[in-house]
Each structure stands twice: as C-alpha cells, then as structure tokens.
C-alpha cells in the first residue's frame, strides 16, 4: 500500500483541494485509493464534500473507539474518504501520535492512501509526514509559501521520506509570481504539476464535489488526471497533440 502525504509549508495554498482531486483522479484510473483527513486540528474534507454530521471519524479511531476500516465513507463521486472530526472538543483533545499506527490498519484494504496533512511543522504535521512513505509538496508561486516549503522539505528529508515533487497551485502567470524554474532550483525538487487559478475549482467547491468529478472536461481536471497518471506510471493523453490534429485533418484529404 502506497502512503502519500500532501504537505505544504504554509497554510492556505490549496492542499486539501489538491488532495481531494488527486485522489478522485487516481480513482478514475481504477485505483482503489482512500483519502485520509490528516489535518487533525482543522479537519475539513467533510466540509468540502458537504458531510458535516458524521457519526464516526478518524478521531474515534485515534481514541480506540473504532477501527479505521469502520470509518471509511463513500462520496457520491465514488471517492472513499476517512474524515476527521470538525468538533472543537475533538480538535483540542486529539493525540496525533497514533496516526501512523491507525493508518497502517488500512494495509491490504486499498492500493494507496492519500493523507491530507496540516501545514507547517507542528506536532500534527509531523505525525502526518511520519505516517506516509512519500510526500508531495503543494505551494503557491509566492516567496512566503516557497520559503516555508523549503523548511518542510528539509524536515521530510531528515525523516527519511521521499519527496516526489512539487505542485504549484493557483498559478496566474502574473509578473509578481516567482517563475517555476526558480522555485524548482530553490526547492531542489521537480515540479510535477502546475495548477492554474481556475473558476471551475470554485464552482466545484460550491457544489461540494471534486472538480475532476463535477467538471471532468475542464482543463484543471485534465491536469489532475495527468498528475495521477504520472504517479502510477500510466499513459494518459489529456488533450489532442499537434500530431493528433494533423491525423484528423489528413482524413479530409
């Protein structure tokens, strides 16, 4: 079972939406993947999917009340999730130390686990990093986010984790943004996806669906599918290449 944590140095870079859509895209390729809300103090995957009032959550598994396999939920999109509790009491009382042990309880139940981690370097984010074998770092093309991302990479490498690469999120191609090649040289990791700021993302959030499910033909959905295909080493052609277009027109003589 692959365990991939989606991490970031700074909060608000769009990590949860990336995790949601990457998991949905992996599912579209027929992979049995579960998304775990590893942000134990600010769990919000349930909120993004419109599922606020769930009887049991990851917090119950951490408190030995339920086994993790009992708290797997299925969203209308087919996405399997393990949500965290949104209650204040649970967020305060939670002990993140058991996260790895609890997530390991999914061994043999799915092909991969995607862990949506908290931002920065805190007790909870360290627990999420510890629970994973591989990391994907999400950042915005802005200096504060990139410098914080560097700290997270250093920490992850010190913990012996494999950082697969960087996802640049909310890219607007504005002059004030740091160029992708600079980010790559600062962080010393490859950029595996560049996701633009896209109105489809906002619409899908309003619909409480991942964009890959609600707007499967959008450019941004194709980018998530590209990313998922890269992760599993599968070929995926999201758009027509120049050669494809030539072939189509060749048929008309």
């Amino acid at each position: 079972m692959r365990k991939i944590a989606i991490v970031s140095g700074k909060g608000g870079v769009g990590k949860t939406l990336v995790a949601l859509n990457l998991t949905t895209a992996l599912k579209e390729f027929g992979r049995d993947v579960i998304l775990v809300d590893g942000d134990l103090r600010n769990a919000n995957i349930g909120v993004y999917l419109g599922a606020l009032n769930l009887p049991f959550t990851l917090h119950d598994a951490l408190k030995y009340k339920k086994h993790i396999t009992e708290i797997v939920y299925r969203h209308g999109s087919g996405l399997k999730i393990i949500p965290g509790s949104i209650s204040f009491e649970n967020s305060v009382e939670v002990e993140p130390d058991r996260l790895k042990e609890v997530i390991d309880g999914l061994e043999g139940k799915c092909e991969a686990v995607i862990i949506d981690s908290p931002a920065g370097i805190s007790e909870e984010s360290l627990a999420a990093i510890d629970a994973a074998d591989e990391l994907i770092l999400v950042t915005n093309p802005e200096m504060p986010a990139v410098t914080d991302a560097l700290k997270t990479i250093k920490f992850a490498e010190a913990a012996g984790k494999n950082v697969i690469g960087i996802i640049l999120n909310r890219v607007e191609n504005q002059r004030h943004e740091i160029h992708a090649s600079h980010i790559q040289s600062i962080l010393g990791k490859p950029i595996i996806a560049s996701i633009p700021e896209d109105h489809h993302m906002k619409r899908s959030a309003h619909l409480k669906h991942p964009v890959v499910y609600s707007h499967p033909n959008s450019h941004v959905a194709a980018l998530f599918k590209d990313l998922a295909a890269k992760l599993i080493g599968q070929e995926y052609k999201s758009r027509l290449t120049k050669e494809d277009i030539k072939k189509v027109f060749a048929n008309f003589g």
Partner: peptide, 23 residues
C-alpha cells in the same frame, strides 16, 4: 436520503451504516 439531500457521503462499514441511518 441522498435524493432528499440529507446526506452527501455514505459509510461503508455495516455497523456505522446502521448508526448513520438511526441518526
């Protein structure tokens, strides 16, 4: 319940399914 928009995500474990329906 989904048609009535009472629920968005569904539990998969039998006991949790029953508890959710009770709620």
């Amino acid at each position: 319940a989904q048609k009535k928009k009472k629920i968005k995500v569904l539990p998969t474990a039998p006991v949790v399914k029953a508890e959710t329906i009770k709620k």
